[in-house]
């Protein structure tokens, strides 16, 4: 008996399996959600989980959730992140979950593990993982390196309103000879600013947690915490919040 949760995001696909097996892994989504879903099926099979078996229940979530044709149910990433966060960080009364995703950033309020309110960024990449990705490409560094550089830098001002404008600002900072550290710091701080302004539209709980890809990033959590003037909790499991939530839904099917 296994309960699988598959969270296919725009950048990475996260998988959690609970039950007879205890598995979690991440693969890049690549250009096709369908292919990612197929690859996940094969990896699970190698690990001894056959999704076509009746005692294995799969719930899919994330932007590519419809592509998982072997899922018994699809649930949105908002509900799944909430359920997953409650498992990872404890489901005390009121929690605010911030998820900086590849293309969407969400701020979700929950009470006792149930979503009470949420908001998402508008149709714009600023304040999302996509923004950091584009800027990392521009600086010619890996994502992880970008955060390392940023920690050492003194942030240059970068507009938090629009990725396209921000990219040309970065180009002019490069032309002016500013250090990569300073530019990286400016980029990350602009994301923190944009995310905190989305948060300001929501009544925040005293307990705030960060899920998704940035959940392992202490530096980003600190920046966000400074802006929000409240502690922001992180966890190495945070990036699996959506998949964990989906697995939790699967266990109740």
């Amino acid at each position: 008996m296994n309960d699988g949760g598959i969270d296919i995001g725009s950048t990475a696909a996260k998988v959690v399996c609970r039950g007879d097996k205890d598995i979690s892994f991440v693969i890049p989504t690549g250009w096709s959600c369908k292919m990612a879903a197929g690859a996940i099926k094969n990896i699970l099979l190698k690990d001894g989980v056959d999704v076509s078996k009746e005692d294995t229940r799969v719930v899919s979530t994330g932007y590519g959730r419809e592509a998982v044709d072997y899922a018994a149910k699809t649930v949105t990433e908002i509900t799944c992140h909430a359920k997953g966060a409650a498992e990872i960080f404890g489901g005390e009364k009121a929690v605010t979950v911030i998820d900086v995703g590849g293309q969407d950033t969400k701020v979700i309020n929950l009470e006792n593990g149930i979503v009470t309110d949420f908001i998402m960024n508008d149709k714009c990449a600023a304040g999302t993982g996509k923004f950091i990705e584009i800027m990392a490409n521009r600086l010619n560094v890996e994502l992880a390196e970008m955060f390392e550089l940023a920690e050492k830098g003194d942030p240059v001002p970068i507009s938090s309103l629009c990725t396209v404008f921000a990219e040309s600002e970065v180009i002019s900072h490069i032309a002016e000879g500013r250090s990569r550290e300073d530019i990286a710091a400016g980029i990350i701080s602009s994301v923190a600013l944009k995310v905190s302004s989305l948060c300001s539209k929501q009544r925040l709980a005293d307990k705030i947690v960060l899920t998704g890809g940035l959940s392992e990033n202490e530096y980003f959590a600190r920046l966000l915490s400074d802006r929000l003037k409240k502690p922001v909790d992180i966890s190495p499991e945070g990036r699996y919040a959506g998949a964990l939530g989906a697995a939790a839904v699967a266990s109740r099917l």
């Binding site: 908002i78 309110d117 949420f118």
Partner: peptide, 28 residues
């Protein structure tokens, strides 16, 4: 009562995002 606002225009480009929000709102 629960409330959600959606800002959108006549294009179809945000249809996926809108659907996710509506779905999540209903799940709630």
């Amino acid at each position: 009562l629960p409330y959600m606002s959606l800002e959108t225009d006549y294009s179809q480009s945000d249809k996926g995002q809108i659907t996710t929000r509506l779905e999540a709102f209903l799940e709630m």
